[in-house]
C-alpha cells in the first residue's frame, strides 16, 4: 500500500527584526501547530530565526512563467520610473 501523503508547508523566517520574512524551505506536517514546531526544529538550529511563518503550500497562487511576457516585460520599457532617467547638473548636488 502506498504511504499516504502528508500536507506540504512552506516556511518563511525572519532572521532579524527589521528584515522581512524570507522563504527558507518546506516540510511535511499534518497541521499548522506541528508545522510550526517542525519549522523551528529544522530551520532555526543555527540561530537563523526570530520569527517563523508556515503556509500550506497549496494556499500559494503563483504566476505562470509562460505569461512572463505579458506579466513583466511591459514594466521594462518604463525607464522614466527610475531616477537615473532624469538629468540634474552636478552642481545641484545630491537629490
Amino acid at each position: 500500500m502506498p504511504t499516504p501523503n502528508t500536507p506540504l508547508w512552506e516556511v518563511f523566517i525572519r532572521s532579524r527584526n527589521g528584515l522581512a520574512h524570507k522563504h527558507v524551505g518546506s516540510l511535511h506536517a499534518t497541521d499548522a501547530t506541528l508545522a510550526l514546531q517542525a519549522a523551528r526544529d529544522i530551520y532555526t538550529r543555527r540561530g537563523e530565526g526570530l520569527s517563523i511563518w508556515v503556509v500550506p503550500s497549496n494556499a500559494i497562487t503563483a504566476s505562470d512563467p509562460a505569461e512572463k511576457g505579458m506579466m513583466f516585460e511591459p514594466a521594462e520599457s518604463k525607464i522614466y520610473r527610475h531616477p537615473t532617467f532624469y538629468e540634474v547638473p552636478d552642481e545641484v548636488g545630491h537629490m
Binding site: 516540510l27 511535511h28 506536517a29 517542525a38 526544529d41 529544522i42
Partner: peptide, 8 residues
C-alpha cells in the same frame, strides 16, 4: 516515525 520528528 518521520524525518521532521527525527530532527525534533
Amino acid at each position: 516515525p518521520m524525518l521532521e520528528e527525527d530532527m525534533a
